[in-house]
Amino acid sequence: MAARPHILIITGYGLNCQEESAAAFRMAGAGTVELIHLNDLITAPEKLGQAHLLMLIGGFSYGDHIAAGRAFAARLKHTLSQPFSSFVREGGLILGVCNGFQILMKLGLLPATEGVIFSQTATITENICGHFYDGWVSLKVNPDSPCIYTRGIDRLYLPARHGEGRILFRDEAVFQEIKKNGQDVLHYTGPDGNPTEEFPYNPNGTAGGLAGLCDTTGRIFGLMPHPEAHILPWTHPLALTRARIGEIPGKGEGLAIFINAVDFIRRHL
């Protein structure tokens, strides 16, 4: 039971969403939010053990060179694999958004269907449209998922902004396992509310409209769209129009993800 959830956010090497991610956790009621440069974490790996939640944020780590998240994942793996293993073993939470999600996949922390980490069984690769795309997407939450971040959420409206967001699995077996485990947390939906592969509702063309995945415990969660960019209700594209015909909500929709994480830490860690 942690009264003061402690959040650790890794920065540096081209990652760039630290301000809004830190603001999201503060608004969600986190006790402390610590930004730490990758190199400082490597020299003080015990910092990881002191945190309840580690966030891998969006951005362009190593400029998306080689493949998005690839080089950053290699550095984490070769400098911090022990602390990461213990952190995961002890039930620590990890949230990866966009580039952070790509890093988690390339590290093998997701989907980790059999609980084996650092072994890559899925990847995230180039959008079918061939370029970066910035647009708001509608998402549906899988109610049967163990994901602790999406409890009580049915639908989300968030901005997606990526050039490499297409999720691919090593083989059909991995995909079946994911579905069986409810690790397929989020799907892009079309105007009819159902999962879609159609651009731009699904900006990258992932089969089945998959937008986010968790591990089997539901404590490690990665997604392509950016919940931290919708913490203020006023960044919703319709906010200014809606404000003139009625009330608009007090919070942005993405904040719910962070509130769930903080609540979970309060109750279980």
Binding site: E20, G135, R161, A229, L240
Partner: peptide, 21 residues
């Protein structure tokens, strides 16, 4: 839309607006 206009999460009135953006 290949340009990011949402990073930092502070864009209120965006380069494209209207109810369909």
């Amino acid at each position: 839309r290949a340009y990011d206009h949402e990073v930092k999460g502070l864009s209120v009135l965006k380069p494209f607006t209207g109810i369909r953006g």
